[in-house]
């Protein structure tokens, strides 16, 4: 296969102008990943869950920091500057640590599914197995929060070639798994169109701290530069900036202060439509036909 055929080519220049509510040039959404990593998951033939034999004490307990400590630090910083979360949720967190999910719900955050566990990978799944995970996600989040999820970020970013078709079949509206643009785009599936909303690998705190080894202040500066550029380009047609987070990273004590500085910068700038993934998808759908 040379091309999965998800969407046609369209260059960045000379597009129809996308306009965000209030005439804002840039939509900013924050995507906290609220995750559960199993300490001793079953093996998958194509990916190891942990670098070390189980238990990977540092790997597991580092992620555990998110739910015990980091979430509240991150969430308080977001609330302080008026950023709602659009939660990428390992839905088993509703069982393991419902206190974290309840806190996010009480803040008015939107939920979408990030699979059941971040230690179960979709590669090699049969369509009915993926359907079971999608159904479980919808039912679990509905029971825990009353919300009906509309979006998907694949567990640990693992896919099959059927995943997008199955999301559309289940009635979901958006995917966060495609990184081809700074605007939403329509994606073709066998069961009708889906919206691909820009998420981000490059300004994901995971890349900032695990891949690029940035200092906390370098990461905050990266967010500000990403924002400034996309806000400027957004005058020609609305752009989207996503800030994907993991509170075991951004919620560490040496990182939360610089992160607050970046949020303050964006909140005070005035050009940002600070919103959720679902609102961005709806604004796009109202302007652009599939």
């Amino acid at each position: 296969m040379q091309d999965p055929g998800l969407y046609p080519y369209r260059g960045w220049r000379d597009r129809a102008k996308l306009v965000w509510p209030g005439g804002k040039p840039i939509a900013v959404w924050v995507a906290p990943n609220l995750e559960y990593y199993e300490i001793d998951p079953p093996p998958h033939p194509k990916r190891r869950a942990w670098a070390r034999p189980h238990p990977d004490v540092v790997g597991f307990s580092h992620r555990d920091y998110a739910n015990r400590v980091g979430h509240w630090r991150m969430a308080d910083a977001m609330s302080e500057f008026g950023f709602p979360g659009s939660v990428s949720l390992s839905v088993a967190l509703c069982q393991h640590h419902p206190e974290v999910v309840a806190d996010a719900a009480a803040r008015g955050w939107e939920f979408f599914s990030h699979g059941i566990y971040n230690t179960r990978y979709a590669y090699d799944m049969e369509p009915d197995e993926e359907r079971a995970i999608i159904r479980d996600s919808i039912e679990t989040v509905r029971a825990a929060t009353g919300q009906t999820i509309r979006g998907w970020l694949a567990p640990a970013l693992t896919h099959t070639v059927n995943t997008l078709d199955l999301l559309a079949e289940a009635g979901l509206a958006y995917t966060c798994d495609l990184y081809h643009d700074d605007q939403p785009t329509w994606v073709t599936t066998r069961n009708g169109p889906l919206v691909a909303i820009p998420y981000s690998l490059e300004v994901n705190d995971h890349y900032g701290f695990f891949v690029y080894n940035m200092s906390p202040r370098e990461y905050a500066e990266t967010l500000i530069r990403q924002y400034e550029r996309l806000a400027a380009e957004g005058e020609a047609g609305g752009t989207v900036m996503c800030i994907p987070l993991h509170s075991y990273l951004i919620g560490q004590p040496h990182r939360i202060g610089p992160f607050r500085d970046a949020l303050r910068h964006i909140a005070r700038d005035g050009r940002a439509w600070i919103t959720t993934a679902g609102e961005i998808v709806d604004a796009f759908r109202a302007q652009v036909a599939p």
């Binding site: 199993e38 300490i39 001793d40 088993a92 069982q95 393991h96 059941i116 079971a132």
Partner: peptide, 11 residues
Amino acid sequence: LAYPRRRHGYD
């Protein structure tokens, strides 16, 4: 696709 330790608290 079985989750025997999906429960309140840890696995």
